[in-house]
Computed example of a mutant assay.
Amino acid sequence: MRLARLLTALTAVSLVVPLVLVALSLLYATREESRERAAEAASRALAVAAEDDARTEPALGVLEALAAHRTASTPEARNALLRQYLRYRDYDRVLSGVLGTVREFTTSANADVVLATSQLGRAVLYVGATSGRVRSARVPSTGQVLDVVVSTDGKRGAYVQADGKAAWFDVDTDAAGLLGPVHRLPAAPGSGVSRDPSVRPRDVGRRPCPRRARPGPPGVVEPGPWHARR
């Protein structure tokens, strides 16, 4: 009797253990499949976001493309990463952080100081663009900024707003805020709400700045061909 009971118990155990192992394997496989699907969905979402942000936040777009590929190597992630590479492969640095699409920008003589304005009329100052760690700061204004200029030594910047009001400020690379107090100036001739659109404030009373940089891809501040490209 005891031998029969022992054999019965061993038989039951031999049947239950494989069933438990199979159930655990199926549960693990189901969880892994769910994780893979979630990772693929997140990767595709990051790839889409990378392409959307590339127009206004190029640096963020690159980071999102890298994150998409690391999350899951989906075709969308690989394509997004390839597009980012092809878009910026000829650039040593990409400056980001301008609110909206870059409208225009200007640099110092060595292009280490960059002042940019967006289509939304917001200005951003960058220092260390070519020599070290890049830092940026929003330039305070009371209206939409149309034109910007930086002195050749990079120690002073100025801008003209859409309403004709102009201002200048000192650039202090050692300060936390990067720029000193903003000094308001009288309205520039030929500017303001009723100004002639063919006459730009920067063309009144002075020659165009020879160091004004040329625009690169949308959302990209390219200091100039003499050092921005390899």
Rank of each mutant, 00 (worst) to 15 (best):
E40P: 04
K165T: 14
L26Q: 00
T30P: 01
G224D: 08
Q161Y: 02
R83D: 13
L185T: 08
D90V: 10
A77V: 08
S141F: 00
Q144G: 15
L125P: 14
R44F: 10
L115Y: 00
L10A: 15
L95G: 12
L86Q: 12
L185D: 04
T74A: 08
A45G: 07
V114H: 00
S96R: 04
A38G: 05
R211S: 15
R156I: 14
Q119T: 13
P189G: 05
A45D: 12
G192R: 07
L3I: 13
V199H: 03
N79V: 11
L146I: 05
V149M: 09
L7I: 05
Q161N: 10
R70G: 15
A167S: 12
R44H: 09
W226A: 14
L86T: 11
L66E: 13
P208H: 10
G190W: 02
A67W: 00
P197R: 03
L63P: 11
L15M: 11
S151R: 03
E222Q: 12
R78H: 15
S118G: 07
L95H: 07
V171S: 06
E36A: 08
L146D: 08
V139D: 04
D153K: 07
L99I: 13
Q119E: 15
V145Y: 01
T8P: 05
A39Q: 07
Q84N: 14
W168E: 12
L3F: 10
D174K: 10
V148P: 05
L146F: 07
V127M: 07
P210S: 06
Q119C: 11
R31E: 15
L10W: 15
E64W: 00
E104S: 14
A39S: 13
L60M: 04
L15Y: 03
A116I: 03
R184W: 08
V160R: 06
V148F: 06
A111L: 05
E57M: 10
P201V: 11
E76K: 04
V98M: 06
T11A: 15
Y126N: 07
S131P: 00
V148A: 03
G154K: 01
G216D: 03
A59Q: 12
S136C: 13
P140Y: 00
A9C: 08
A65R: 09
L179M: 13
L7W: 11
A166R: 05
V150D: 03
R93E: 02
R122P: 09
G100K: 06
P189K: 02
G128D: 08
